[in-house]
Design a protein around this nucleic acid. Structure first.
Lengths: 131, 131
DNA sequence: CTTACATCTGAACAATCATTCAGATGTTGG
DNA sequence: CCAACATCTGAATGATTGTTCAGATGTAAG
C-alpha cells in the first residue's frame, strides 16, 4: 500500500518494517553473487560427481575422474579448469599426470551437508524395506 | 594404464582400486541429479535473496519480496513458481495477497551453512579493521 | 457489476553454459 | 630426438535459462 525507494526506484510495499529489517540483515550484493556462483559450481551433475569423488578419496588424476564420473576427459578438463579458476580444487603434478584435490573448505562443508542428507534419506528408505 | 567398462564403454584408468571404491560410494544417478537441481535453485542471486529473506523473516508477500530483492514482481513470481514446483517454498493466501515461506529443510540447512560462512568471513574482515 | 488491485502466466528474446572436436602443450622413456 | 602419452585449450554448437512484456486470472471494495 505504501511506497519506498530502493535502487532509487519506487516500489509498492505492504509491510515496510519487515522489508526494512530484512534488507539490512541480507548479505551484501557482492556476497550474494559470490554465493550464487559457488552454488552454480555445484549445480551440475558432472561437477558434483567430480567434487564428491574428491571429497571421498582425497586425490585423483584426470583420467580416473573421467572414469568415475562417466564424462569424457576433455569435459572433465574443462570442468576442472572452471573449478580451479574458482579455487575450489588444487592441482599436484606427478610426472605427466595431474592430481586434483579439494581446496575450499566452504565447498567441502556444503558438499558434506548435501551428501549427508542424501545418504540419510537413502538410509530411511532402506529401513522401510527392512522386513 | 589399464582399461575398464563403465557404461559399457572402455576407459583408461590409473588407480583401478580407487576408481572402483569411489564409484560404489558415490550417490546414485538419481540422487546426483536431484542434488544438482537443488543447488541450481540456489545458484541465482535473485532466488538466493528471496530464500535468504524468507529464512530471515519467515513469511513475505510477493510485492515485499520484490522490494527486498530488487526484482520486478513478474520476475519474483516466475522465481517463486519454480521454487514452488520444487516444493522449496509454500504459499498461504490472505485476501488478494500470497504469502510465501520456506518449506524444505534440506534447502534451509544448505542456506544456513552458506550464509553462516558468509557472515563468518565478514566478521573476520571486520575484526581486521578493528584498530 | 464494475473498478482497482495482486499475482500469475506464456511467448519471445538475450545470455549463459556444457559438450564436442581437433589440435596444442608439455611429459616420459627409449 | 622421437613417439606415445596425459592433459589442456579454443572455437563452435546445441541446450538451458532469466528477464521482459502484455495480458489473463482471481480477489476485494464501492
Amino acid at each position: 500500500m505504501s511506497v519506498t525507494g530502493i535502487d532509487g526506484c519506487v516500489v509498492r510495499v505492504v509491510d515496510a518494517d519487515k522489508v526494512a529489517a530484512v534488507r539490512t540483515s541480507l548479505p551484501a550484493d557482492e556476497d550474494v553473487f559470490e554465493l550464487a556462483d559457488m552454488f552454480g559450481l555445484l549445480a551440475e551433475p558432472g561437477r558434483l560427481r567430480l567434487l564428491a569423488s574428491l571429497l571421498e578419496v582425497g586425490e585423483l588424476c584426470v583420467c580416473d575422474l573421467a572414469a568415475v564420473s562417466g564424462m569424457s576427459e576433455s569435459a572433465v578438463s574443462h570442468a576442472l579448469r572452471l573449478l580451479r579458476a574458482h579455487r575450489v580444487v588444487q592441482v599436484r603434478r606427478a610426472g605427466r599426470r595431474n592430481y586434483y584435490r579439494l581446496a575450499d573448505s566452504h565447498v567441502r562443508m556444503l558438499l558434506d551437508t548435501a551428501l549427508a542428507h542424501t545418504e540419510h534419506t537413502k538410509a530411511r528408505q532402506t529401513d522401510v524395506g527392512h522386513s
